[in-house]
């Protein structure tokens, strides 16, 4: 049963329930998925947590290069690892 405070996002197509207030970067970590693949193809995830390093860039609702570390999840949000 979804708790009242839980919302559902999709990480690389897989549904994932997260608590309200969870950041998109945390959703990736919960799904054990990297936020992006680097220019030479290595998996990467957020490093600074404060909008500076750009390692947490991902595709959010089809838009590329969105930083996910300061971005709260909302219901129905589609997150994809950025290639």
């Amino acid at each position: 049963m979804p708790t009242p405070d839980a919302i559902t996002v999709a990480v690389n197509g897989q549904p994932l329930q997260v608590a309200r207030g969870t950041t998109a970067a945390a959703a990736f970590a919960l799904a054990s998925a990297p936020c992006r693949l680097s220019t030479t193809g290595d998996p990467r995830s957020g490093v600074c947590g404060m909008g500076i390093c750009f390692e947490c860039r991902a595709i959010v609702d089809g838009v590329r290069h969105v930083r996910t570390c300061q971005l709260p999840c909302y219901d129905g949000m589609k997150l994809e690892t950025q290639q």
Binding site: A25, A26, S38, G46, V47, M50
Partner: peptide
């Protein structure tokens, strides 16, 4: 934070100290 390169520092799971704290505060 100042981040310095060392072997493996780009692996997922490695982050700034404040970075991991922020991820935790962000619901992880």
């Amino acid at each position: 934070e100042r981040l310095l390169p060392f072997p493996g520092w780009t692996l997922p799971g490695v982050s700034g100290a404040g970075g991991l704290q922020a991820l935790t505060k962000g619901g992880f």
